[in-house]
Design a protein around this nucleic acid. Structure first.
Lengths: 243, 243
DNA sequence: TTCTATTTAGGAACAGTGTTCGTGTCAACC
DNA sequence: GGTTGACACGAACACTGTTCCTAAATAGAA
């Protein structure tokens, strides 16, 4: 009745104990080319998401890539939810956090957010898992901690800093999710929404949409990244002098 | 080979033609107590989401509530995706848009966003459908149009207004999604994350998390709505004088 | 060395999911 | 009155996450 994955998961959310990778392994894994480990599962899963998107990430798919059955994964991973957690942990671990600099703190958080954005967009749709991730995941906490340090170094009062970071992370996740969903739509759908097509539709709207019709150009202008940086500037700009 | 739902869906995204509710109906629907219509499906679906949450929303579930099989729905609805689209359209249709007032424009958009928030939170998890909704949905466009009018009345330049509204809507959706997901987690999970529990965990973090440990109180303070209004104030505050 | 305990691997199955096919049934038009 | 076409729907397909239970193989104990 031993349940190692559950315990391992609980431990993951408690303390950053050095992962006790037992040098010696047991079980019928000698016949395998590569043993099934949590890292192998995570790596394989990330590869699938990178290549085919998050909703192609299936326990069966991962198991198949590892040349085994789906049941074999549940010895190392509690859930699909647990796997999701591991994935975004793995991604957050790659984020580089600069030493807080009081003079350039705004550029610094924007750069960290851009790192997260690029990391998430490289794995389309995974931001959904990021939104659902439990807030006590150690790797996401590491990123929060780093961002908090940067904003505090900028002289922002702690309460404002705490909530602002919450808002920033939430926005980054949402941005990536929306972008991924839109890309997936635009990929192989008959009604791909190019900018021209959008402009045409806005122009064809009835008179009850005066502003949308008049400012269709502004509404459809800019790349996704342009909007991303616009919003981040907007949020961070208001942090210095609160009203 | 007639495909009415596809055509209807396409029409929905083109022009707000008055819904041609043919007074006379055909087919073996006389034996039914209530005929299966798009409205009936949407209404039933909303009821399910309100009571049991978005991931209880299943084609089979809706069909069952309508006392029929799942195949019957596909005569009126193209997809589950189409149903999702209809649902958020229905919700957006309920949003009341005030007449733009240049003096109180900030309070006005915040109030509209709060309306959307309450509407989405009443149907837990449906914000996921809102994020995935195609941007040419007429009802969501109506809301965007209303918000655009308010911000423009506030004297914000059109380009800034357009992108800011995009950011606002994105944030509201993400906020609702995260809140719903957290609620679902906290509902019947053994590791429910109460505020005390969170404080304890932050206190137990290793020394590599100095800021998180020191400001655990600020990080865990406030209700979800507090954070919502904080962020909306933050975003709208930066709209007047752009740098 | 032999034996047992523990851990890992995995086949088969269960209860769900979205979606499609084909068939049957009824109402409205010519 | 017969034909047409919209509607309803049972059955099935290809999936999904997850659990049960069995088989294998090693680690430590006797």
């Amino acid at each position: 009745m031993a349940s190692p994955p559950q315990r391992r998961r609980a431990a993951r959310h408690r303390q950053p104990l050095a992962d006790g990778t037992n040098a010696t392994r047991r079980g019928p894994s000698a016949g395998r080319k590569k043993p099934i480990t949590v890292d192998a599962i995570v790596e394989t899963a990330l590869g699938i998401v990178e290549r085919e998107g998050y909703d192609a990430l299936t326990m069966r798919r991962v198991a198949g890539a590892l040349e085994t059955g789906p049941a074999s994964l549940y010895a190392h991973v509690v859930n699909k939810e647990d796997l999701d957690d591991l994935l975004i942990g793995r991604l957050c671990a790659e984020i580089e956090l600069p030493e807080p600099n009081p003079r350039t703190w705004r550029e610094q958080i924007i750069s960290v957010c851009a790192q997260i954005r690029d990391q998430y967009l490289r794995y389309p749709g995974i931001s959904l898992a990021a939104l659902a991730a439990v807030p006590t995941n150690l790797e996401t906490l590491r990123v929060s901690e780093g961002m908090l340090g940067i904003v505090l170094a900028g002289g922002v009062d702690p309460q404002t800093a705490a909530w602002a970071i919450d808002a920033l992370i939430l926005y980054v996740n949402a941005f990536c999710l929306e972008t991924s969903l839109l890309d997936r739509h635009a990929d192989q759908e008959e009604w791909a929404v190019s900018r021209d097509e959008l402009l045409r539709r806005f122009a064809a709207l009835p008179g009850t949409f005066p502003h949308t019709k008049r400012h269709a150009a502004e509404l459809t202008s800019g790349t996704a990244v342009d909007r991303f940086e616009f919003t981040l500037n907007l949020i961070t700009a208001g942090l210095g002098n609160r009203t």
